[in-house]
Design a protein around this nucleic acid. Structure first.
Length: 203
DNA sequence: GGCCAGATGGCC
DNA sequence: GCCATCTGGCCG
């Protein structure tokens, strides 16, 4: 993967990351996924973004150069990972919502639990991080320079298979069509409207 | 300083 | 549907 591919808005990059490969090698083994679901988040213009109110210690990586990993904790127990896009100094990132495990399925199942079905191993942003073994220690990692977590070109995905919809679980700007996923793919997570989402006009 | 909400997931 | 669990951000 070339950094040039990521040097655009999150909205542009998010659909293009479908089909790309994310790999994490550890002493225990290697797990790789094909990305099947993403969401775009921007900065000052996006009320649902962590960067909406400006730079803070938590979201600082979002403001940095493209190709780095932004990891945050959700609800006190899950980790979620984003790929930073765009220009250094301007916040934007793509949340990795789901993927298909293509290497290291045994290790992924060890991390996720015995009973988890193959397609569900990395279904949902928290599960994706757990299957890959991504935690806070990977926040800020450069994915393009051969660090432990690496983003690489995978299979090319036919445009006709890409679907767009509203983002999952966000209470603000929840109508924005910034979620991208592969049609009919069982590894894609279920849509859920935030309980706090305000009713929108025309609904 | 304190409180509330949250880019979730699993179990009842 | 409900709850766990904790951190960031804002004073709702």
């Amino acid at each position: 993967m070339n950094v040039g591919h990521l040097a655009h808005s999150a909205e542009e990059v998010a659909p293009k990351l479908l089909g790309a490969t994310l790999t994490h090698a550890t002493p225990e083994g290697t797990v790789s996924i094909t990305i099947t679901e993403t969401e775009a988040y921007s900065g000052a213009a996006d009320p649902a973004s962590h960067a909406y109110r400006g730079r803070t210690p938590r979201n600082a990586v979002m403001f940095g150069p493209a190709g780095h990993l932004y990891v945050y904790r959700s609800h006190g127990l899950h980790w979620c990972a984003n790929i930073v896009t765009g220009t250094d100094g301007i916040a934007s990132a793509v949340l990795l919502r789901a993927g298909r495990v293509i290497e290291g399925e045994d290790l992924a199942r060890e991390r996720r639990g015995d009973k988890v079905e193959g397609p569900r191993l990395a279904r949902g942003p928290g599960n994706l991080c757990r299957a890959l073994g991504i935690t806070a220690e990977h926040n800020g990692t450069d994915l393009l320079t051969g660090a432990s977590v690496v983003l690489s070109d995978g299979e090319s995905v036919p445009t006709a298979l890409i679907r767009v919809g509203p983002r999952v679980g966000v209470s603000r700007a929840h109508d924005r069509q910034h979620r991208f996923y592969l049609a009919g793919d069982p590894t894609v997570s279920a849509y859920r409207l935030s309980p706090r989402a305000k009713p929108s006009a025309g609904a």
